[in-house]
Design a binder for these strands. Structure first.
Lengths: 198, 198
DNA sequence: ACATTCTTGGACCGATCGTTCCAAGTAGCC
DNA sequence: GGCTACTTGGAACGATCGGTCCAAGAATGT
């Protein structure tokens, strides 16, 4: 029919990300992916390989586009960990109010699916979460050297806790919790960085 | 072959809970349920109806057995919300170290699956989460009247936050996080109930 | 103009999904 | 001991799953 590709690979990838984001790895069928991307079977398999490979490509795409914006928010307040993490939470909540965006977070969704995920996908998901923790830990360390993080406990646990809270927001959003309630949860979580209270 | 039932319904239900708990609603096939319960197709369908009805029965069973134990821990420290929620977290973490128990929590797992769950199941999951929040809110209110909860913000948000943290523990456990790390997260989260710090 | 290379949509595949159905057989009742 | 009511395991069902294959046709190079 054509000779050269009739579509932009990145556009199709974005569409596939959206399908997985809406339905999860198991819940997204190839038929859903075909409908979402607008591709035919031949094009999809020739371009992306099988469902697992496509999913891995989608995780990567998600990390470099969607998650990257959250990371930018996190880094936008150097030296002030509370403002940095707060900005990340705010960015997450803002995205949830975009009706064009699926609910929750692809990484959180996939983390819940870990038990039934292909091994490579499970490993990538774990790496993505570990990467988020590493980023937050970096921000905290930077702030601690400026004397802004007065927390007395384990800094590693603090970073995991803050990332875990972000995943809580995504999970509860997926379960139908409204954004104002999530805002309250995020604000409450940030009190840990604030022993002297609001 | 028999004339009267050859198995205890509650035992079969417990086995089915375990299967759903391990693989989620979508991931658990009827074949898995047959293997897990040891029943034949005829017995399973005659006793529990279709997969959705069985799942609803499993959610109920889970709530009245597994979740009930966590609730008991929560209520075991009347007047001391921090000890109460801490005991609940400890009970969650203790269960995770039981090798005979699937990882995470059936409710949390199902919350992540909400988008692809049958409507009635989704509603039940939301009700279960709302019930947990109500319980924690009750404990907090009881403690506040005793002057133990010094938090200045929204008490509803505080309850949702504490339940959300429990779900974080379950989600991260499912994703492979080890229990000591989860312990650190739980301890960090409890600092919110402790403005004057450890 | 021709041959080659690549893309494309759909037909098609075996496997597996959830569900229905039924012959075989047992327990309880009169 | 016959009759009814019930349970049971497995056969079988249509639908759908992920994946393969291929004829048709368009772009490229010479």
């Amino acid at each position: 029919m054509t000779g050269r590709k009739q579509f932009a690979v990145d556009d199709a990838l974005d569409a596939a990300v959206r399908v997985f984001w809406e339905r999860g790895y198991d819940g997204a069928t190839v038929a859903h992916l075909l409908e979402g991307t607008g591709l035919g079977r031949g094009s999809l398999y020739a371009t992306f390989g099988d469902k697992e490979e496509l999913f891995l490509a989608c995780l990567d795409r998600y990390a470099t586009t969607v998650a990257a914006r959250l990371l930018a928010a996190l880094r936008s307040h150097p030296g002030d960990p509370r403002a940095a993490v707060g900005a990340m939470y705010t960015a997450i909540l803002a995205r949830m109010q975009d009706p064009g965006c699926p609910s929750g977070c692809l990484v959180t969704l996939s983390a819940g699916e870990c038990a039934t995920l292909p091994q490579r996908a499970r490993e990538v998901v774990q790496q993505l979460i570990a990467g988020q923790v590493r980023e937050v830990r970096g921000v905290l360390a930077e702030g601690a050297s400026c004397g802004v993080v007065p927390h007395g406990g384990d800094p590693d646990a603090l970073a995991e806790y803050l990332v875990g809270t972000a995943q809580t927001l995504a999970l509860l959003h997926r379960a139908g919790t409204d954004v104002p309630t999530l805002r309250g949860i995020a604000d409450t979580a940030l009190h840990v960085l604030h022993p002297e209270v609001p």
